[in-house]
Simulated scan of single mutants.
Amino acid sequence: MKFGDLRQMIDRTARIQICDHVSGDYMDYRFVEDVPHENDSRTVFGIGLVRSEYREEGVLSYGRNCYAIEIRLLEPETILGSKVLEYEAKDKMKALIINCSPVRTGSTAEIAKLVSEQLSNKYSVNSICIDDYSFAFCKGCRLCHNTAKCAMSDANVIEDIMDEFDAADFIVSVSPSYWADIPGQFKAFIDRCTPWCNTHEPHAYIKPGKKGYAIALRTGPNMPECERIIGSIEHFYGHLEIESVGHLGLTSIEYKADVETRKQEIIEFCKII
């Protein structure tokens, strides 16, 4: 389909982002009628929904109207050419693996590593550890309820993590049990995500359509403790409008060596992601 044909089908009030599929360059437009007609002969490679950077009178407002219809275009001569194949890898779906433990070398990290290895066969994978970031506790000032932005001086740290969420199609959180729940460091991160929480307007957004998975592990044999951890993670996903679609509880794991005995179980779980 040519963009000129698609132009006729788009709501006139929708914000538009035109992206060159090969170069990655993009331009935001307030209305579809503002898109130059020189694009009409270009081929539509894909359509999606993205956070809009369009600023009205220099001010970016917050809320649902911060989204735009992204339309990726190709020049007519490249649609069957090698450039499409060359850039297919660039469009590979992305998975974000989060080690929710402050320990970078323990059993949780070992599971996160195994998950990353398994998913790298089909997705572009990015792995992070919550201990990679330093940030303060949420102060509960609620200013973000009115601005959709955190007023604390280290807000950029949380925004960097949320950028990782925004870039991913799948999020896998791997958490150990700290007194029958997620570690305090990860809970502190969740508290700082209040600007993105969907219980108030305005609020910040990540792109929709994401799938969330949770893996919980604990030292003892009590599976309900894992279920409580999974519940905390899935509750967090829900308020970010990430769909929870799978989880795995692993008991009797304390050290890295214990992971080896559950390796096949973890590999099987990765097959559903």
Rank of each mutant, 00 (worst) to 15 (best):
Ala14Asn: 02
Tyr255Ala: 14
Gly106Gln: 03
Ser107Ala: 15
Met93Leu: 14
Cys193Tyr: 02
Ser175Gly: 12
Glu77Tyr: 10
Ala109Met: 12
Asp191Val: 05
Lys92Ala: 05
Tyr178Gly: 06
Glu70Ser: 15
Ala204Ser: 15
Tyr123Thr: 07
Glu56Trp: 04
Leu114Tyr: 11
Ser124Gln: 14
Ala95Phe: 03
Ile111Tyr: 12
Arg30Thr: 01
Ala112Phe: 12
Gln118Cys: 14
Ile230Asp: 06
Leu74Asp: 10
Ile130Phe: 06
Glu75Ser: 10
Leu240Phe: 02
Arg55Thr: 06
Arg42Thr: 01
Lys90Ile: 03
Met223His: 09
Pro208Leu: 04
Val84Gly: 03
Tyr205Ser: 02
Pro176Phe: 08
Asp132Phe: 08
Thr105Tyr: 13
Glu243Gln: 09
Ala89Asn: 15
Phe170Lys: 15
Arg262Ile: 01
Ser127Tyr: 03
Ala155Lys: 12
Ile79Tyr: 10
Ile266Val: 10
His235Lys: 13
Glu86Asp: 03
Ser244Ala: 15
Asp5Tyr: 05
Ala148Phe: 07
Thr43Phe: 14
Lys122Gln: 13
Thr43Pro: 02
Val157Met: 10
Tyr67Glu: 07
Gly212His: 08
Cys141Ser: 09
Thr43Glu: 05
Asn198Leu: 00
Asn198Gly: 08
Ile253Met: 07
Val115Arg: 08
His247Val: 00
Met9Tyr: 08
Ile10Gln: 01
Ala109Asp: 08
Ser127Arg: 15
Lys92Leu: 11
